[in-house]
């Protein structure tokens, strides 16, 4: 069932994936005019993280809202699809459909910024390691929009304070990896953050979904 829904999401949401990538590329392309030769590793890491978070915030309200509006959620749940199975499909979809393409466009941005390959890989590793934490937060933010009269970006914006630790931690991973800093404590810390945000995100998401259908 999860695979079937995942396939369906990819078929239906092509436009949204395209806009996330386009936004990501455009953003990097514009900035490349300003810092083409002078962007430091720290600057590049910072821009990459801002870029990723912006693109994900942009798509966040549209993760569940269209499915709710056109009755897809009602249909799926009437087929006895469990809430956790739906979350699994959505989280995998966000990762494969949005997160990976956005990371791909971050690589292209790195090329625009004249960064060497090692730097690009190190910068990309930060968000990749922290992907579960980021995606679960975006997922929870998108469910907040379902339970609120306020639409659009307002509710996901409430998630920003929760992003700050991930953001700071992610940038330090990217920089420290490049400086050959012993990385295992940082990476272990990142996995800890993934587990913490992951568990909290699932519990909170489940609560929000049940609250909506109660």
């Amino acid at each position: 069932m999860i695979l079937k829904i995942l396939k369906h999401f990819f078929k239906i949401e092509k436009n949204l994936i395209g806009s996330a990538i386009l936004f990501s590329l455009l953003y990097g392309f514009l900035y490349s005019f300003f810092w083409l030769d002078s962007l430091s590793l720290k600057g590049f890491a910072l821009l990459t993280w801002i870029n990723i978070l912006f693109a994900l915030f942009l798509i966040s309200p549209d993760i569940y809202a269209p499915d709710l509006a056109d009755g897809s959620l009602d249909f799926l749940f009437s087929q006895k699809l469990s809430v956790l199975n739906l979350f699994c499909a959505k989280i995998i979809f966000i990762f494969l459909g949005y997160f990976i393409p956005i990371l791909g466009s971050a690589i292209l941005n790195g090329i625009f910024f004249n960064q060497d390959l090692a730097t690009i890989i190190h910068v990309i590793l930060g968000p990749l390691i922290l992907a579960p934490a980021i995606i679960l937060l975006i997922h929870t933010g998108s469910l907040l929009t379902l339970n609120s009269a306020a639409s659009g970006f307002l509710m996901p914006i409430l998630m920003i304070p929760f992003f700050i630790p991930i953001f700071i931690f992610g940038i330090s991973i990217s920089i420290k990896l490049q400086e050959n800093f012993p990385s295992s404590p940082l990476i272990l810390g990142a996995f800890g953050m993934d587990i913490f945000y992951g568990i909290l995100g699932i519990i909170f998401s489940k609560f929000l979904m049940e609250e909506h259908f109660r």
Binding site: I12, D67, A69, D70, G71, S72, D74, F75, L76, S78
Partner: peptide, 9 residues
């Protein structure tokens, strides 16, 4: 189940 809207895209 057939609601007012039923998941057509």
């Amino acid at each position: 189940y057939l609601g007012h809207k039923f998941g057509t895209k």
